[in-house]
């Protein structure tokens, strides 16, 4: 079943997220781990794209508006062949195309500079409209953070989208996913500036709204299918868990923007792989690749 395949890929991507953030010594694990399942579903089987031709005019576009989660995007890009996986450890290092937040001019495959929150939906509207105007068979996927939609520009774009280009060039090619992990930098979203009722807000602005568990591949894929079949722009509100997959990061605002220390990273990877502590050394003995990774991270700690 496709889900088992995607589960495996997403697990591997989670490991790479932890790895690159540990090498970088800074970055945003929580939101990267919450959004990775949606990105995995998009990049493995959903997108019409060609990693060898990132400038293919008719490619589907992914705009990661919550740009701080870019380690997740880099992980799926490396795995689909946009660049070698070995380059992931250059994240945030001087001279690397893997900037701390997405830089379109630095890395082919990045569609827009994002990370200054609130801007990606407007860019996505422009992309979707431009593609519709020339009748390109391409879709645009925009991923918003939950805290991000506190930005006013998001609602300017939300108000414009259902009417834009129509009726001749209405946006039937735009799917937005809200990574609703309930935590922003300072605290829980509900404690900073509650979004609720968030579904009603988007509905009131004229959007088709779907609600799913953003870690359930069956639900993700069903929603993406449904979005494609819907007339007009669609937002998929994906309930997610910040830090998903790493027990000590889950649902903890502390892990919004803090890289794990090497020892924590090894624990995180053990968690992601679902190996009990008592069985870890045995697991490493049977899995030389994981052993090499654990050694690589341990060596960072020894520095």
């Amino acid at each position: 079943m496709a889900d088992a395949r995607l589960e495996t890929i997403a697990r591997e991507c989670r490991v790479q997220i932890i790895r690159m953030l540990t090498h970088a010594g800074s970055g945003h694990p929580g939101g990267s781990l919450s959004v990775i399942d949606v990105l995995t579903a998009l990049f493995f089987g959903r997108l019409r794209h060609d990693p060898r031709r990132p400038d293919w005019p008719d490619r589907d576009r992914v705009v990661l508006s919550k740009g701080h989660a870019v380690p997740a995007l880099y992980a799926v890009m490396a795995k689909t062949g946009y660049f070698p996986e070995s380059r992931l450890v250059t994240l945030r290092k001087l001279g690397s195309p893997l900037q701390g937040h997405p830089d379109r001019t630095a890395l082919p495959g990045i569609e827009a500079a994002t990370g200054s929150l609130g801007q990606g939906l407007s860019i996505s509207l422009g992309l979707a409209l431009g593609l519709r105007l020339r009748q390109a068979p391409a879709r645009v996927y925009c991923i918003l953070g939950d805290g991000e939609i506190q930005e006013g520009q998001v609602w300017e774009a939300a108000m414009a989208a259902p009417k834009l280009g129509g009726p001749a060039h209405g946006l039937d090619n735009l799917t937005v996913v809200l990574d609703y992990n309930k935590i922003q930098l300072d605290n829980f979203v509900a404690k900073i500036l509650d979004l609720e009722p968030v579904l009603a807000k988007w509905q009131a602005f004229g959007w088709s709204v779907l609600e799913i568990d953003g870690h359930d591949f069956e639900q993700i894929n069903k929603a993406l299918d449904q979005a494609e079949a819907t007339v007009g722009p669609v937002i998929v509100v994906a309930h997610t868990v910040k830090g998903r997959g790493v027990s000590f990061m889950e649902n903890d605002p502390e892990w919004h923007g803090k890289a794990p220390k090497p020892a924590e990273a090894i624990r995180a990877i053990r968690d992601i792989l679902g190996v009990p502590e008592a069985e870890w050394s045995g697991h490493l003995a049977r899995h030389p690749e994981t052993k090499a990774l654990a050694d690589e991270l341990a060596a960072l700690g020894a520095k």
């Binding site: 005019p57 990606g120 407007s122 422009g126 992309l127 774009a157």
Partner: peptide, 19 residues
């Protein structure tokens, strides 16, 4: 795009990226 200049600027960027 109505009285919403930020969205106008960003939307312009997206259009430009499609040629």
């Amino acid at each position: 795009l109505g009285i919403a200049e930020s969205n106008m600027v960003g939307l312009g960027a997206g259009l430009a990226l499609t040629g």
